[in-house]
Design a protein around this nucleic acid. Structure first.
Length: 426
RNA sequence: GGAGAGGUGACCGAGUGGUCGAAGGUGCUCGCCUGGAAAGUGAGUGUGCCCCAAAAGGGUACCGGGGGUUCGAAUCCCUUCCUCUCCGCCA
């Protein structure tokens, strides 16, 4: 949720920022919010005056009663009764206005950072970096990963369908070990980079969903739990960031750097076709997520630092990757700037997104009420998060790029974790 | 799942209808004391919203959340969430 005072004091910048996302009617949209806000403030003033009057009279009644002047107290009582009715009405009106203002604000996405390129097409995304060379696969070892997992019997989609449904694979043997190895590797790397390890619940309540923005609009993305008002998390970002909901930090607590591994659950309603084959898109997948809470001054340095961390992971895994600075139109609703990381999968001949690193500035912390004390004043903090990394597409690229006629060679960095160098037929 | 107790400021803890945004303590900040520190000592120390160009100042709301009774609620009632104790069940 945008901060209302930012729109108030920086109207032009807000308008042009939203236009960068391809929202042509940005100005009337923001003007409408300002109008609602003005109404709210007028009403607040009126209500406070009425309450003040009532409070003064109530105190007088108390004093009169103590002095035994009952008649005078009685006549004041009738006055306070009418004041009470008035303030009750005003209060209801104010509540309505506040909800209206909130829902108007919920409809407005974050304002993109100055360095976000304008545009609405995927082609408007800026490739800021490309690393590694695309693998040259030979004719006798050029299978997409969905064939490889069957050949070596390491991931079983059919069996997963039996237990749950499509998109819930079962990892077996070397496949299961590879999952465990990647998770441990990612967690260890994050810990070395100064992130504090967290193991959060993977089920969240409504308040948490609201605070990080999955609710109220995107419940379609999450699996709900029947008769509990709980949801399965779509990403560890939700429980981990919510640790700091309703918090006032001290300067010396900052920055907060946390990492957590969780399974993630996404409905992915409405997506199908070639893009979602095999491991490319799942309903349940594993991900290690890094989260930072930063002062506004440092948040963009931190964003860069998080990108460097992800780069290092991919380099150690020897996977060719590229980084995209997402354009306004491709930017997530709550993000001010996002860098997407894609690895190249050799057999599919496709770039697959494996990480998304974002700075939300105060968009999340405003709903979270996450602040810190700076020179005696409370200041909203900036929140950032990124995948480091999501497993399935990493596995897809590892399998495809490292295949040989005899087996799949793992990058050396994983060998201490897996205990084997190659995936072969038993 | 059954029975009971309880949720008060950064923390501990008092407060059972009026002058309570809340005693007292701890912590923290600033000062005095000290060669320096500790001890001692003085003062200050919640958050949101609104008025005000800003500061100063003022108003209002907040004692787990929501609703109610009352002229007036931390205090009474309802509801919900959470914590603890005992019993049951159990990885």
């Amino acid at each position: 949720m945008l901060e209302i005072h930012l729109i108030r004091s920086n109207f032009e910048a807000a308008v042009s920022g939203l236009q960068k996302r391809g929202i042509p009617q940005a100005e009337p949209l923001l003007q409408k919010v300002l109008d609602t806000d003005q109404q709210r403030r007028d009403l607040q003033l009126k209500l406070d005056k009425t309450l003040e009057e009532g409070n003064i009279k109530s105190k007088q009644i108390g004093m009169l009663m103590q002095e035994g002047r009952k008649d005078e107290a009685q006549s004041l009582k009738t006055e306070t009764s009418t004041l009470k009715l008035q303030s009750k009405g005003l209060q209801d009106e104010l509540q309505d206005l506040i909800s209206k203002l909130k829902s108007q604000l919920y409809d407005i996405p974050n304002i993109p950072h100055i360095q976000v390129p304008a545009g609405t097409e995927e082609t408007d995304n800026q490739v800021t970096e490309e690393w590694g060379t695309k693998p040259q696969l030979t004719d006798n070892a050029n299978s997409p990963h969905w064939d490889l997992i069957k050949k070596y019997d390491i991931i079983d989609f059919d069996l997963g369908s039996k237990i749950t449904g499509a998109g819930f694979p079962i990892y077996k043997g070397a496949g299961a070990k590879l999952q465990r190895a990647l998770i441990s590797f990612f967690l260890d790397e994050a810990e070395q980079a100064g992130y504090h390890e967290i193991q959060p619940p993977i089920v969240i309540n409504e308040d948490s969903g609201l605070a990080t923005g999955q609710l109220p609009d995107k419940e379609g993305q999450m699996y709900g739990i029947v008769d509990s008002n709980f949801y399965l998390i779509p990403t560890a970002e939700v429980p981990i960031t919510n640790i700091y909901r309703d918090s006032m930090l001290r300067a010396q607590d900052l920055p907060v750097k946390m990492v957590g591994y969780t399974p993630c659950f996404r409905r992915e309603a409405g997506s199908w076709g070639a893009d979602v084959r095999g491991l490319n898109r799942l309903h349940q997948f594993d991900k290690v997520e890094i989260v930072q809470i930063q002062t506004p001054e440092n948040s963009y340095v931190a964003l860069q630092e998080m990108c460097d961390h992800v780069k290092a992971l991919l380099q150690k895994l020897e996977l060719p990757y590229r980084i995209l600075n997402l354009c306004g139109g491709d930017l997530g609703f709550t993000s001010a700037q996002t860098f997407d990381f894609e690895v190249f999968a050799g057999a599919q001949q496709k770039w697959l997104e494996v990480s998304s690193v974002s700075n939300f500035e105060t968009y999340q912390s405003n709903r979270l009420k996450l602040r810190y004390k700076k020179d005696g004043k409370s200041v909203l903090l900036h929140t950032l998060n990124g995948s480091a990394l999501a497993l399935p597409r990493i596995v897809a690229a590892l399998l495809e790029n490292n295949q040989t006629p005899k087996g799949i060679k793992l990058p050396p960095v994983l060998v201490p974790y897996t205990g084997f160098e190659q995936i072969t037929n038993k």
